[in-house]
């Protein structure tokens, strides 16, 4: 089987973002986009720098998106302990252990976010 996919996963994810924006802009009569806001958790394998690069590459030839700014809000990793319910920020990114009581059964509350929050543009 053959597939048309690009070789950095950020590129295919960015293409998805721009498709969502284009579809929505067409529906909302927007002919110029100025800003796109993404939320990316720190426990994702999506690199903000790489997303910026892919955005530049993909938007530069597109009239709707030319000159638009990509804003990325990063979210910390926050875990909640299953036994003592304490919420804590995971600074090292890998110790999934409650710093309060030492229990290892924790739930990830924040950090897996990966979404297009909003975009701004001009109406026709």
């Amino acid at each position: 089987m053959k597939y048309e996919v690009k070789n950095v996963h950020e590129l295919s994810i960015m293409e998805g973002v721009l498709k969502m924006v284009r579809d929505s802009a067409a529906q909302s009569n927007i002919n110029k986009v100025h800003k796109i806001n993404l939320v990316i958790g720190k426990l994702t394998m999506v690199l903000p720098d790489s997303m910026q690069f892919c955005f530049q590459v993909l938007s530069s030839q597109d009239e709707l998106l030319q000159g638009a700014v990509l804003e990325i809000e990063e979210r910390d990793i926050i875990i909640q302990c299953a036994s003592c319910e304490q919420q804590s920020t995971l600074n090292d990114g890998f110790s999934f252990i409650c710093p309060g009581c030492g229990a290892s059964e924790v739930e990830i509350i924040n950090g897996r976010e990966l979404y297009l929050d909003y975009y701004e543009g001009d109406e026709c």
Binding site: S24, S28, L38, V46, Y115, Y118, G121
Partner: peptide, 14 residues
Amino acid sequence: MVQINMESNLLGAN
């Protein structure tokens, strides 16, 4: 200028 709220998961399709 208008702001359009999306809240769309980037891996939603997958």
